[in-house]
Design a protein around this nucleic acid. Structure first.
Length: 377
DNA sequence: TGAAGGGAAGTTAGCTATAC
DNA sequence: GTATAGCTAACTTCCCTTCA
């Protein structure tokens, strides 16, 4: 019901702006309303360029970490951080981008171009300006861009008879989830900024308000409220660069990684065959992090180092009698050392704690088998 | 509202150990 | 030697989150 109302409202706003011929003619006057440093470069498009210090300046080497293996050996200067502000969330033909930002590192600076679409008739110029930046040696960096920004751009290019160049993309949402989903309440960019990057926005505009501010601009020509959107959008792109620089820095200096991130970084490093990952996980496990113990023991088990795996399971079991370590120890006692009574004791303890029907039936099955072996053996 | 991708859970195939 | 059971890895399916 709520979403239906929102859709009706959006359609009504689009209809109002499209039915009003005078809106477009008024736009030619409104373009000059955008203050310096905005520059009017096409009938309905303006551009603003911003400069700040590159967050990669103190990081050596400046290669993209192997955390993103498909980008191996490419230089930071090939990255194109990007973000769109749009007229809504839903995909399809009804939503378009009215603000596009692209940032890149040049020498010691982070340069960000923001392109603003004053009204719908200028969309083709808006897209052509974007296309100029998308050369095939670039790597796009986004936050949820693979699911949101990229498909939306593809649709808009298609609708204007243009082809969106095919470029590799790093979507930092998924990297962030792998790194921090266990210790942050959510992995929205704002939360990552606040809790990881130490970036705290003041008077920031919530994303949900952005489409309405743009539709109001289309109707009233008043550009002041857009300043908040421009500021919000610029910060989004800066944060992308800072986030990748942060991950890059940790990747190349693994022993400076904060205590509570060692397990997740260690896990990814181990997955990427970086032996520092093993050391990080060992350090976490020494601090009683059972998740680190779980990852480490699976690694040892797969690499046929059963002694090391068993030592971890025993220690984990002494710390807390949970399903993972209990089951692994029960398997080990039953099949390797033939200590049937030890296995049985563990399974019975797990059954006292378990309340999931599915797990319970598996434990019962295991217990019956162990009891048969105990009687016969 | 739609799409991508990570992870959990479920399924299947292949291998090994054991019982008869 | 054959049947059965268990384990593991690989694969599939489903759910959840994020974007303005």
């Amino acid at each position: 019901m709520g979403s239906g109302g929102a859709l009706t409202g959006r359609l009504s706003r689009i209809r109002t702006s499209r039915n009003s011929k005078s809106v477009s003619t008024q736009k030619n006057e409104s373009i000059t309303l955008l203050k310096h440093p905005w520059r009017h470069i096409k009938p309905f498009v303006s551009i603003r360029q911003s400069f700040s210090t590159s967050p990669f300046n103190n990081i050596i080497p400046k290669n993209i970490p192997l955390l993103f293996p498909q980008m191996e050996n490419r230089n930071i200067e090939k990255l194109l951080f990007y973000d769109l502000e749009t007229t809504g969330l839903s995909g399809g033909a009804g939503t378009l981008a009215f603000l596009a930002g692209f940032g890149w590192v040049e020498n010691d600076r982070l340069i960000i171009n923001q392109y603003f679409l004053h009204d719908f008739p200028g969309e083709i110029d808006f897209l052509l300006l974007i296309k100029e930046l998308l050369t095939d040696d670039k790597i796009l960096v986004s936050y949820n861009g693979k699911s949101f920004d990229h498909p939306l751009l593809r649709t808009r290019f298609l609708m204007k008879g243009l082809k969106l160049p095919s470029i590799s993309e790093i979507d930092l949402l998924h990297t962030s989830r792998r790194l921090w989903k266990n210790r942050l309440p959510s992995c929205r960019l704002g939360v990552i900024e606040d809790r990881i990057l130490d970036i705290h926005r003041v008077n920031d505009i919530p994303g949900i308000e952005v489409p309405d501010i743009y539709f109001d601009f289309l109707k009233t020509n008043k550009s002041e409220p857009l300043e908040g959107v421009f500021k919000h959008h610029l910060q989004d792109i800066k944060s992308l660069a800072f986030l990748l620089a942060y991950i890059n820095g940790q990747w190349f200096n693994p022993f400076n990684i904060p205590e509570n991130d060692k397990t997740s970084f260690g896990k990814i490093m181990l997955f990427r065959n970086r032996e520092e990952g093993l050391e990080l996980l060992k350090q976490s496990f020494l601090k009683k992090d059972n998740e680190a113990g779980k990852i480490l023991s699976i690694y040892y088990k797969r690499n046929k180092n059963l002694t090391a795996a068993v030592n971890i399971w025993k220690e984990m079991w002494n710390n807390s009698q949970e399903l993972f370590q209990g089951l692994e120890l029960a398997k080990y006692y039953e099949h390797k050392t033939k200590e049937i009574e030890s296995a049985l004791e563990i399974v019975k303890l797990l059954m006292q704690k378990e309340n999931t029907e599915r797990i319970m039936s598996k434990l019962e099955h295991r217990m019956r088998r162990l009891e048969r072996k105990s009687v016969s053996g």
